[in-house]
Design a binder for these strands. Structure first.
Lengths: 231, 231
DNA sequence: GGATGTGAAGTAGTTCACAGCC
DNA sequence: GGCTGTGAACTACTTCACATCC
């Protein structure tokens, strides 16, 4: 009760997208044995101004020290708290192709509150084998208790998988398949698309604007969809 | 000369990140044999309002038809033109682990102007083998003529790869390794991080805000960095 | 001295509302 | 009738500038 839930204070969308970046930077600092970091250093690495960093972090409460900057350990913890990592989530991944393997084996994908509780594939050769310490299940097996579903199948299978997720009560979907999927209202689909990243980078390359040309700064691009059934 | 370069008109950052999404939606429509789409339909699928869609597209010139919506073919072409796909880019990918395989085999990563001109790995077992029709090269071989470099190595190798890119004259880097890298000023690093996507999705899940709760809308998250050498 | 945290000002992006056109 | 394209109003985010505190 000492610390009222920071979660109540709603953070702006841009801030939310930057906090994980700051967290990663702080982790890098800590791993190199450094204890303090200031807003200018974070901004330089994240590609935003020092003022923006301070404003973002001020939203989490007073966690800096005037004259000295931020303690990296405190920073990491408070960001984790604000993003809800202390709650924990159960994640299932469907599609054990190269991308699925890459994800579940990644040291970073499943940290920070996420727990892998099931991996699935439709291919008979794949089912029953072990990946990242877990046995690959058939799509017919239930997906009990998961909160987040990740789709790493080819585009053609994405809608079927999404339907299974919805039936299993999963409200949040991370879709890596290059395919727009439809889900009932109230279900969030977050859409990750590599080619879109590449396209945005290329636009800036063409125009000399944005991240190029000495400017620092940002980027992004990815769509999220919630919509009624049909089309 | 009939059509002056659309590229001159600078588009806003949010618009740039949404255009590839609209393009993908239009492609999906076309693939299902549909010829027209209106701003409301695009918005529903992309997770933005119809007005935002119209404003974004108006920036590319008058490509809609009042009363009828947009012709999907025209839409696809004009967005491609605006993003510079008619120019074409040479891409090299370093790191032929699961993620590297997933990328170069993806039907979507290397379309729309991108050409794969080289794939590299440091592992002796990997070098010389063929992936996606290309022979994997040693890191010692030159990277002539590439404009964009993609890093899909473990984090520990990312900085070395970035250094090689810089020496080879590559100005734009797409970094999938969970590692902040430093490059000379004038070089753009676009940072793609799966765990960050997951974190943002989880934040919304916790708070019931954003993409959840019947609202449509968006997302994103990924950092891009340009900064001087050192740390 | 030095860096945070924040009112105030400025800028950018979104949404409203409707005129214009098919 | 229906949907685009856009001035005008609004909202949100960023940046400035500085008081505040270590």
């Amino acid at each position: 009760m000492a610390t009222p839930r920071l979660r109540n204070k709603k953070l702006s969308e841009p801030t939310i997208s930057r906090l994980p970046v700051y967290q990663r930077i702080a982790e890098g600092w800590r791993n190199r044995g450094l204890q303090h970091i200031d807003s200018e250093q974070i901004g330089g690495l994240a590609g935003v101004t020092a003022t923006t960093v301070r404003r973002d972090l001020a939203g989490l409460g007073s966690l800096g020290t005037r004259g000295a900057g931020y303690d990296v350990q405190v920073l990491i913890e408070r960001i984790a708290e604000a993003l809800g990592h202390d709650i924990g989530y159960d994640v299932v991944v469907v599609g054990m192709g190269n991308l699925g393997h890459a994800l579940v084996n990644s040291s970073n994908f499943l940290t920070r509150g996420a727990r892998l509780v099931g991996i699935y594939d439709s291919s008979p050769e794949m089912i029953g084998t072990y990946v990242a310490g877990q046995q690959v299940k058939s799509m017919n097996e239930p997906m009990i208790g998961a909160t987040v579903g990740v789709i790493t199948t080819p585009g053609s299978a994405a809608q079927d998988v999404a339907d299974k997720f919805v039936k299993a009560g999963i409200h949040a979907i991370l879709n890596f398949a290059p395919q727009v999927i439809t889900v009932p209202l109230g279900c969030a689909v977050h859409y990750v698309d590599f080619s879109i990243e590449l396209q945005i980078l290329m636009y800036h390359l063409n125009n000399g604007t944005g991240p190029l040309g000495g400017g620092l700064l940002h980027s992004l691009g990815i769509a999220s969809v919630t919509m009624p059934r049909s089309s």
